[in-house]
Amino acid sequence: MTTWTDYLLTDSPESRRQAKLGQIYRKWLAFPRNPLAMVGLGIIVALLLVAAFAPLIATADPLAQNLDRRLLPPSGANFFGTDSLGRDIFSRIVYGTRVTLVIVLLVVVTVGPIGLLIGAASGYLGGWVDRLLMRMTDVFLAFPRLVLALAFVAALGPGLENAVIAIAITAWPPYARVARAETLIIRQQDYIAAIRLQGASQWRIVWKHVVPMCLPSLIVRTTLDMAGIILIAAGLGFLGLGAQPPIPEWGAMISAGREQIFDQWWVATFPGLAICVVALGFNLLGDGLRDVMDAR
């Protein structure tokens, strides 16, 4: 433990990576001073815990129907009431955390590397590669994101996996932009020139040296983007193009409660609140991270 902190907090770092990591660590130490960010972190941790212990927290099977107990208002037995098939909304929301996490993680895992690679390659290689790739991001950015995701899901067919793919397709360009901007700064630096002189291949430089240096800003970008991903996924679910029934996806749950909105308000209200809280958590955390990570 001490060795790690020593390594990170040393005044004389031996490599660029150590220097950069040390920088980040110092910022991390400053992080708890930002109360809003801590609230965000708290929400995310709570989200993870609920997802992990869903079976313990839920009071009922999220899929168990009981048609004779439909549309019951919130009560001691059903904290958030029941939906049009008599399922317990509280338990569905609890299990819905898993769905949300899966969507977010899958998108991030797909988008991060793609955006990073395209951006880094574009920024580092320059020339026609840069022009081509940036033109591509321009085209994608010229689409409203939701409309594009909608079109892709319509093309791929509804479902959780396809929703993830569609969101990923629409999400990568800003990542590529960020990575490219970072790369443009990094490639100017002396040590990259030094490595190049040593005869390293371009791809190796991009992969081994440029990409790692872009990571921190991309992580911030990702955290900030998580809320957006959740909202788009919920929007697709709401339009009936996201997760398949009976999966307790929050957007689809709101959509299902739409018909009863004026009489049984709880069916659509609680899943919406859940989305708000989680999205807010990611936003608070991301915002705090951004403050810490870049001086701007």
Partner: peptide, 12 residues
């Protein structure tokens, strides 16, 4: 908050 509310839910 503005960034976190699903617009369709807010509308409902």
């Amino acid at each position: 908050f503005g960034y976190s509310i699903p617009v369709f839910w807010l509308g409902l």
